[in-house]
Design a protein around this nucleic acid. Structure first.
Lengths: 222, 222
DNA sequence: ATTACTACGTTACGAGTAT
DNA sequence: TATACTCGTAACGTAGTAA
């Protein structure tokens, strides 16, 4: 049986710092195992000094020990480290295949960029290589601004998820309003993002292929 | 085998959002189990759709699924809820046995209160009943300012753990600098705290027994 | 090198039941 | 009521070894 899961169950019942009476039957129902299993497991956890137990007239009083609290805290911290949201994302400029111009010039897209993002896009997108893990952390919980697709006589054009951001050179000298654009049916992989802005980012930030830039949610956010 | 623990191990190896090659032998050594066990467990986790696997030329590429990430996140949040630190603590005034005057009047204590806490204590302490769990959350990670004990011809006087705080009535009108004092060999239980201040708190906050007050770390902290 | 099969020993589980 | 025995069965872990 899963030590952490059971320990957490007990902590939620008894409180992290408190002790409280419980019955093996009650816990067994919540856990979908037999009463005997809970009884055995409680004694196992006690032996491991993760909890303390003492019999009471109608059950057992149970609470976490410092070691038990420590184990839960350790897990929390390890998971936190994995999932923490980043406020910045570093990307390395590279030259794409030129489809960027496509998004920024097609009228139905362009007008939505203006209306929804407040950006009248300079033709073309800035392509950035990023760490996929960092990209996920950066975008975690962010709600995209959705630019809807359309079709003309020849083909259909997919929707685009967008995010208002700021982009800076690594020296933090120039701070420019921009937007992350993520075509929902992307031709790029997880290690790539595209950025649009009202101005020529390559020129304004003085970028050559391989130079790094930093994306931020705002100049001072959260 | 502990599902959460193994899943976390994999997440730390592969990254929360990434996939990465691993060998069952490598993980078995880290985990102190046999290679076969890891092999079986990986297949179990795959069956439960917590991870995905695909064979590679020198091992297996493994990553978490959305469900796997969700399970870890769920645990993190449940533990967070249990352990989150409180910035405020509500207490209910009650009349103690008068030993408070003892701490605030004994010269060796008094002089340390002035020097270490910046408080020339008004005689007596304000006794507050608090939720033991909330008390723990409030004091969690706080570093006490230690007022050392002493002895005279008759007896020894124990050390006191102190914390600089602010105390307010619940209407948040009056905000007063104060200190929590926790005798290290306390005669009070976990559901009690004592507060000292330069002024008469009962008078300044207009307190009668049973009235509630709020303790805070500072007027605007953390 | 790997992963994963079989075989076997050990541990964990649950029903019945003693306390 | 409760916890915790016994004991039959199921699941798990490991060594050897195949693929």
């Amino acid at each position: 049986m899963d030590t952490i899961k059971l320990l957490l169950e007990i902590a939620e019942h008894s409180g992290f710092y408190k002790k409280k009476e419980l019955t093996t039957i009650h816990l067994s129902k919540k856990y979908q195992v037999s009463q005997q299993t809970i009884s055995n497991q409680l004694r196992r956890l006690e032996k491991q000094e993760l909890i303390f137990r003492s019999p009471s007239y109608s059950g057992t009083v149970v609470g976490l020990t410092a070691a038990g609290r420590g184990l839960l805290s350790e897990f929390k911290e390890r998971i936190e480290k994995l999932t923490e949201r980043s406020d910045t994302l570093v990307g390395k400029a590279f030259t794409g295949l030129g489809e960027g111009r496509f998004y920024t010039e097609k009228m139905p897209y362009k007008s939505q960029f203006v209306k929804k993002l407040g950006i009248k896009p300079y033709p073309g997108t800035l392509n950035l290589k990023v760490d996929p893990d960092e990209k996920m952390k950066f975008l975690q919980d962010a709600t995209p601004i959705r630019v809807v697709g359309f079709k003309n006589e020849n083909r259909t054009y997919g929707a685009i998820s967008c995010h208002n951001i700021y982009i800076t050179d690594m020296k933090d000298i120039t701070d420019m309003k921009a937007a992350l654009i993520i075509p929902e049916r992307s031709h790029y992989s997880d290690d790539t993002v595209e950025v649009i802005s009202a101005e020529n980012l390559r020129y304004k930030l003085n970028l050559k292929d391989g130079n790094e830039v930093e994306l931020k949610w705002s100049i001072k956010q959260n």
